[in-house]
Nucleic acid binder design. Structure first.
Lengths: 147, 147
DNA sequence: CGGGTCAGTTGGTAAACCAAACCGACTATC
DNA sequence: GATAGTCGGTTTGGTTTACCAACTGACCCG
């Protein structure tokens, strides 16, 4: 076998959808309640044509929905689907990493709990619920290659 | 003010580093213990020149370290820094989302706890520690615009 | 009718990406 | 000791994508 195929993996599949430039920034905006083309464009800085393409691919991928809020000059708003909302941990993870490790951390948009405190991501064991901080507690396994 | 500046935000800053194509797949491989150029190339499918550039930028960004493991034909391995390990929640989040929402979820590399169970990301309140599932419990705030 | 808003579209250029070939320093096999 | 293969790249050349500015069409306001 001269060249092995790249690893099939849900990380890669997810990145095919939201890993392109601007995609996650668009989602950030929609998370923050910014739903209109012009505002998303201004807040992300994405070129308008690229933004159009991203919005379409995010819609096709099922993370955004496009709602017409005006009929006669057709005007649209973009909303998160359930799948889109499920990307929240990714956004929070990126935000948290940036606040901790970027050389000059910019002011962060706050994702807050109803009690007013910030929100953070925790990697926990799915069964015992124990938090795994520091990475040392995790064993990462490839698919078993028997024999 | 004709055009507002794009929002300064740690999410954007983090994406400047790890948001380029292949970057997070490279990190996935290093997380899984794949440390050599040829293996990372095979498992990600990234073109060799692009991979070289990504490895350099990830190194410059402080998430990877390059170690020479052979002197005379110079050979290298790539390792995670503490900052690199801190991106684990992002990878796990992407993996989890893909497993749940991709139309045909591919076999997932397992990130397991030492107890043998899978690992998941939880978004929790930083203070009361309460998990916020379903997105409905989170209030996302922009910087306050008073008045 | 002129100007402004909104959600794009169009056209031209710059950059990124990609596959394949090449390279230097080895090692392993004949 | 010539041939083949490994490893970590670099170089080449062509394709795709991103980017930016300007434009469009449908409306609203005056």
């Amino acid at each position: 076998m001269p060249d092995t195929k790249p690893r099939a993996c849900p990380i890669a599949g997810t990145l095919d959808l939201v890993g392109e430039r601007w995609a996650l920034l668009v989602l950030r905006e929609v998370f923050m309640g910014v739903r209109r083309f012009a505002d998303i464009q201004a807040n992300t800085g994405a070129p308008r044509d690229v933004l159009t393409k991203r919005l379409r691919s995010l819609e096709a991928g099922g993370v955004l929905e496009r709602h017409r809020y005006l009929e006669r000059p057709p005007r649209f708003e973009y909303h998160l689907t359930a799948a889109g909302q499920a990307l929240e941990p990714v956004l929070i993870g990126l935000r948290e990493w940036g606040m901790r490790y970027l050389p000059d951390p910019p002011p962060a948009p706050r994702f807050i709990h109803t009690c007013g405190a910030d929100v953070v991501t925790r990697v926990v064991c799915a069964e015992c619920g124990q938090p795994l901080e520091g990475g040392g507690l995790v064993s990462v396994l490839e698919e078993a290659h028997p024999g």
